[in-house]
């Protein structure tokens, strides 16, 4: 019997997910504009120099881009998948030959899409109003690209993995949002990481967001700032290793624990 390629089905799922995402105006506006609004608030309130040639708002934009990966992947999926489970969307899909992997790929594509929209706005307003300098070296863009890809993939899969935690779609937001907000505070998004208590730094270092923010700083802040980091360096290799480790963990947990129905 002929088999339909899972990749092809994943792309079809992705197209459909984007279509549905675009038609939910509130969620588009919220997901895309929320980081921009935060950028304006924090960027306007804290505009001091934190190092020669580096302002807090530049530091903050890098953090917001990293947060965007966690928001549009982990947070959005860990909230929306329990709702899909409640509505019976997942139960219906489970009854078809469509494999779970295609569903996951579709989610990843949708996250990448919403990430792309967010990034465009953040970079646009960041450069115009908050002194963000777009990198000129190709190597920085290369780092940026793999950070986005690894970040999206691991954030998507961890969101899928976490989607089994909320008991219902209704309560999902209350379960998931605090996790994300606490991680943002601990990971150096709202505060300069090195000024946080060391137990907080150690705790944050377990999770991907801290490494994503650090990676984004390596892209958008001058190299001279590397000495201000906790390890006196950007730790690019370590960032890649930790993100890949979380990605692999995400794949295994998702495939093992994913629930199509409430029972």
């Amino acid at each position: 019997m002929k088999q339909i390629s899972t990749i092809k089905l994943g792309l079809a799922r992705g197209t459909l997910e984007i279509k549905q995402f675009n038609r939910q105006r509130e969620s588009v506006v919220f997901t895309i504009l929320f980081p921009v609004i935060l950028l304006f608030i924090f960027g306007s309130v804290f505009n001091d120099s934190i190092a020669p040639g580096v302002t807090f708002s530049q530091y903050f934009v890098a953090g917001m881009i990293a947060s965007g990966l966690v928001n549009s992947g982990f947070q959005q999926l860990a909230i929306s998948i329990p709702i899909e489970r409640d509505l019976g969307t997942l139960k219906r899909l489970r009854g078809t030959p469509m494999p779970a992997t295609a569903y996951f790929i579709g989610k990843g594509i949708q996250v990448l899409y919403s990430m792309f929209l967010q990034l465009t706005l953040l970079l646009f307003f960041g450069t115009i109003f908050f002194g963000l300098d777009l990198p000129t070296q190709p190597s920085k863009w290369f780092t940026f690209t793999w950070l986005i890809i690894l970040g999206t993939a691991s954030s998507t899969l961890l969101g899928i993995a976490f989607s089994v935690v909320p008991k219902s779609g209704r309560g999902a937001s209350a379960v998931v949002s605090p996790v994300v907000i606490v991680l943002q505070f601990f990971s150096g998004v709202f505060f300069i990481f090195t000024t946080l208590p060391s137990w907080m730094q150690h705790f944050a270092a377990i999770f991907p967001l801290k490494w994503l923010t650090q990676g984004m700083r390596s892209v958008f802040l001058p190299d001279s700032f590397a000495t201000q980091e906790a390890a006196k360096s950007w730790e690019i290799n370590k960032i890649a290793i930790i993100l890949i480790a979380w990605l692999i963990a995400g794949v295994f947990i998702s495939l093992k624990t994913f629930k199509w129905t409430k029972e």
């Binding site: 459909l16 279509k19 549905q20 038609r23 939910q24 899909e84 509505l87 019976g88 969307t89 139960k91 219906r92 009854g95």
Partner: peptide, 11 residues
Amino acid sequence: VLQTTMDALDL
């Protein structure tokens, strides 16, 4: 064909 499903509302 399951009992009541409420999905794909925006398609």
